[in-house]
Amino acid sequence: MSEPVLSVRDLRVEFVTRRGILKAIDGVSFDIAKGEVLGVVGESGAGKSVTGSAVIGLIDPPGRIAGGEVRLGGQRIDNLSPEAMRRVRGKRIGMIFQDPLTSLNPLYRVGEQLVETIQTHTNLSNAGARKRAIELLAEVGIPAPERRIDGYPHEFSGGMRQRVVIALALCAEPELIIADEPTTALDVSVQAQIISLLKRLGREHGTAIMLVTHDMGVIAETADRVAVMYSGRIAEIGPVRQVVQTPLHPYAKGLMGAIPTLVQSSDDRLVQIPGSMPRLSAIPPGCPFHPRCPHAWDRCSRDRPDPIQHAEHRVACHLYDANDPTAKAHMIHTHAPLEEGVAS
């Protein structure tokens, strides 16, 4: 396999507050290959958005990157100067956020913003850049781009704005696109359009995409691999089909069972994980999931689980530690569906 586009190793992000240091990201490692879509999924507070911000060097004080490495195409980028990082962000990493209006200047025509971005990264003439902008708008599926290019952002609907933002992110032909909840603000019918657009662009341009979202459905539709985050760590990472259909980590299992779907019988109760994700100020020792875990034993509250390779998954759970006899005893249960195990 060739070198990954993005390689993150043992990334740590901390927030310094008066009540102590909060570990928002605590040792996260993953790779994204060329043309691959990595879904990063988790509930609010899991650290998925912070991970995205850390990769593009957008952690503002009181936050700071406290350790680890981020490599883009083999080059370390986590220790670049803010100026150099800004160039990397514009040129080599494209960004798509939840609210398209944060990325678009309401006072400028869409075309002006596209042309300006294209010209900062290429030496195209005005006419050439405009031609390229129209091509991009056409590529992201905006009808009549020759006419729409002179519109202002407020003249576009929500879905169309998000398409413009995607076109903007594509201007510099980046190696990596970070999309943070790109479909969350959109209606279901529009969401599906944006998902398929992202998927197609990743395939055609060979762009690596890091797709951060809380929506497992979007991940299942779009991603090649998925990382499930919990309390600032990756609980499980693996090919999307395996993780969604046969998750290993008890949290991932609970999460998949908790999602109401269009196929299961509506008489079934949803699997529920008791409690909620701990606040950053109160992350329990050992495995952060152990207070909510139906399989936890004493080791889980003591030792922090390291990621273990298990078939195609990497899972941070003591259950899959082949050398632990207690884990073996527990494994028998885990092959039964988790289901009501947690409900009383």
Partner: peptide
């Protein structure tokens, strides 16, 4: 609308493309 719901079951069903917005 039903077609647009992301398919978490990954049945690989064929979907009709959705047109336009509200």
């Amino acid at each position: 609308l039903l077609d647009a719901v992301p398919d978490i079951g990954m049945t690989g069903r064929q979907r009709v493309p959705v047109n336009g917005e509200i």
